[in-house]
């Protein structure tokens, strides 16, 4: 059941050691609790995310998946009503405890949200935005990178003639790929994707899925999805949550074939 309950140790070296499944966890979450007033949103979450794999978060609506993602890049800071306790180790840093450079920390993670949010500027500037924030101002270099990442998400051919038009003019599927390109352009290690295909048509979804398969060679992907088939297609590791708790986690083949808990069984059969 709880395949990765971590014992009470606080040394980062120990926590980031090789775990039973033979992979280095790039993210290690320990005793994470999130409260909003009396509402206990995340309850004692302990979770290791393997590097260069796709970890899929599953669970009924409202179980805290988005909140868990937001803890990983400290977007929870934006919500004064949330109280977060515990540890989130990323790449050797306890990000909930260190306060020095949140911007740099956030650049280690690319965020892809449920709906694409292109920034109110041109296509080109959307991708250049994060690059400039890294302190790169060389025009040539920016141009090179914008093209590179637009190619990486397969958008370049579609937009190369209208780079300087507003990004909102793109279709939703294109916008989502633009958001991915923009996220990749800051060269993150981890991609946090919160139901990235839920607003997309099947073809655009397929494109994103294929990109993810490609991207996991170089990135660690944490994907929230409600589409079980998508989870089956993409997941290397599945985490099933319910009411703010991790109920089960493991390899997709085991988990989907032999769910150990009634909750997961229900979720799987009602979902199909």
């Amino acid at each position: 059941m709880y395949t990765s309950v971590i014992t009470d140790t606080t040394l980062p070296e120990v926590n980031l050691g090789i775990r039973g499944n033979g992979h280095h966890p790039i993210v290690s979450i320990q005793r994470l609790n999130v409260y909003a007033g009396n509402h206990h949103i995340l309850k004692n979450i302990n979770l290791d995310i393997p590097k260069n794999k796709i970890t899929v978060l599953l669970g009924p609506s409202g179980c805290g998946k988005t909140t868990l993602l937001k803890c990983m890049n400290r977007l929870t800071d934006l919500y004064h009503e949330l109280k977060v306790t515990g540890d989130v180790w990323i790449d050797g840093d306890n990000i909930l405890k260190s306060n020095d450079n949140i911007a740099a920390l956030r650049q280690k993670m690319g965020l892809l949200s449920q709906r694409p949010y292109p920034l109110p500027m041109s296509i080109f500037k959307n991708v250049a935005y994060g690059i400039k924030l890294k302190g790169i101002y060389d025009k040539k270099l920016i141009q090179y990178n914008v093209e590179k990442y637009l190619r990486e998400v397969g958008l370049w051919e579609e937009v190369k003639d209208r780079l300087h038009q507003p990004a909102v003019g793109l279709s939703i599927g294109q916008q989502q790929r633009l958001c991915l390109a923009r996220g990749l352009a800051v060269r993150p290690q981890i991609i946090l994707a919160d139901e990235p295909t839920s607003a997309l048509d099947p073809i655009s979804s397929k494109i994103i899925e294929n990109l993810f398969k490609e991207l996991k060679k170089n990135y660690t992907i944490i994907l929230v999805t409600h589409v079980l088939r998508q989870a089956v297609r993409l997941a290397d590791h599945v985490v099933f949550m319910s009411y703010g708790e991790i109920i089960e986690e493991g390899a997709p083949a085991d988990l989907f074939k032999n769910p150990a808990t009634e909750k997961l069984r229900e979720y799987i059969y009602d979902g199909n």
């Binding site: 890049n73 977007l75 934006l78 911007a103 740099a104 956030r106 650049q107 993670m109 690319g110 965020l111 949200s113 709906r115 949010y117 920034l119 109110p120 500027m121 935005y129 994060g130 924030l133 890294k134 958001c179 923009r182 996220g183 800051v186 946090l192």
Partner: peptide, 19 residues
């Protein structure tokens, strides 16, 4: 979500508000 997108790209809060 738009502000969060900007923050996630590494902008400071004020930069996100401004841009």
């Amino acid at each position: 979500g738009m502000k969060e997108a900007s923050l996630a790209l590494g902008a400071s809060y004020w930069e996100s508000v401004k841009h």
